[in-house]
Amino acid sequence: MKGNRRGALLGLPMTLWTAVFVGIVLLYLLALSFFTPTGEGYGVQPGFTLENYRRLLSPAYLQVLGKSLLLAFYTTLICLGLGYPFGYCMARAGRRWRGILMLLVIVPFWTNALVRIYGWKILLMGNGPVNDLLMALHLTDKPLKLLNTYGAVLLGMVYALIPFMILPVYSSVEKMDWSLVAAARDMGAGPMRAFVTVTLPLTAPGAMAGVVLTFVPAIGLFFISDLLGGATDMYVGNLVRDQMLKAKDLPFAAAVSVVLLILTLLILRLYRRFGGDSGDMTLF
């Protein structure tokens, strides 16, 4: 009992900080989404209107939302397709190699995210190295338009988020009990069958954590489409930013954020419902 009181006291700074800067801040966000903008600077008129949400239901905005979800979906799918085998091979490598590979995966992510995306921008430019190489190999006569395309945005997204798939898959494959696979093989299962019936279900929690960890941030990233996609395509992230900076319409931006928040919480809820443990999501 005494221990609990001391615990509560030690936890007080974190409890207060969380209550104010997460709890109250998100409640204000919710309230703000029902307010009306006054049109002067960032001014808002408190009240209760569903107008912001009604505007969000217009086809143009629904399309932005749909496109963002689709981009996040493709990003996650490619991350899974490349990251799962990567994490798997990494965990199956020799003991010495595992540490080295882990370091190799993490180090690029210690440089600023913007800089790495900017590196891709240089690579993909009309007169950049990739086009030079393609022309030197006579695969194309004139430079291809690689930058400011959907493909470039997708590449940037996958590049930025793939470690969040690799690491949980790696840890789930590494802690797997391989004698189970050996048992399946002894009972006559082929390597493919053993993989599908034993390895895959056992490593699914890692892959599922990876899916959540890539999909959720993918919905809100706006700087990648900004830098690699040109200003041609609008995603939810850009929408929130523009509503805030250009239109200065805080209530509408709040409504968009609330929809994103509810979507995220639903995904996290689903993840738990299907047996996901938030422990699998802590990478470090």
Binding site: L29, V216, P217, G220, A253, A254, L260, L261
Partner: peptide, 16 residues
């Protein structure tokens, strides 16, 4: 856990 943009925007709104 949530997209960064939500926390960023919400904090900005509260500070304003």
């Amino acid at each position: 856990m949530i997209p960064e943009i939500i926390l960023g925007f919400a904090l900005m709104a509260v500070f304003t």
